[in-house]
Design a protein around this nucleic acid. Sequence first.
DNA 1: GTTGTTGCAAAGAATTTGCAACATA
DNA 2: TATGTTGCAAATTCTTTGCAACAAC
Lengths: 137, 137
Amino acid sequence: MDTTTTDRALRDAGLRATRQRLTVLDSLRGRPEAVTAQELHMQLRQAGEPIGLTTVYRTVTALADAGFLDVFNRDGEQAFRLCGDVHHHHLVCETCNTVEEIPAAEVERWVAQVADRHGYEVTGHRADIFGICSRCR
Amino acid sequence: MDTTTTDRALRDAGLRATRQRLTVLDSLRGRPEAVTAQELHMQLRQAGEPIGLTTVYRTVTALADAGFLDVFNRDGEQAFRLCGDVHHHHLVCETCNTVEEIPAAEVERWVAQVADRHGYEVTGHRADIFGICSRCR
DNA sequence: GTTGTTGCAAAGAATTTGCAACATA
DNA sequence: TATGTTGCAAATTCTTTGCAACAAC
């Protein structure tokens, strides 16, 4: 894996490149599904990585704040997933928790239009589609 | 207020029309902002309504399941709001928590299209816009 | 009368915080 | 070396459950 790039990205975000953070990022890399802090901690521990639950919480929060992770909500629990750096929307499989990123100019246009019509200053938006993916059907 | 209609609606949903449920529905009626179970409980108590926190939790959950309430997420906390019975989307003010319902045929079309393209069977979707309303700006 | 509902107290689960030891830059 | 980070244990906060009294139908 590309440790150098990751290192760099972390420092650019004002975060030190600690073993724990690199481990978390590495574990998240290439995974299509969103995971909770608890799940991630358990998996890392089982994989022999020494890392505290507190650290996992702090790490995913910091990474999400820095824009590395998308945050989803699974029955009131936060689930995280590595995300692209350009704005996008999601197609979430409710069976396997896999998330596909989908760009959506249509939605952006709709957002601007509606906000304008109602006199809102937009701070953000989300448009997610939930369903069952072809593999799970 | 229209107690008869409310009574009827509850029974149609298979729920008994108890004083507590009517109180919660009445309190929610006409409120533009989403409230958490804790907030609702506190407010009702302060208004002199005898109702337990447990009951408020059970009530909003039941009402949401029955489709009377929309559920929002405020930092991992669930917030509820009375909602219309046809599908719609939301324009949420992050300052005063006010929620405006907005119908959106454009979004429905987009959802169907994307899901189809990816081989998903749609089970749901949400498209919410966050911002600062004109009054709060 | 039967069955669903309430509410308290207690349990449970997710997440945060204090703080001393430690690692990174 | 200076400062950000870690991790444990404890504390917080949101939410759910057990169960006996109670209210709706």
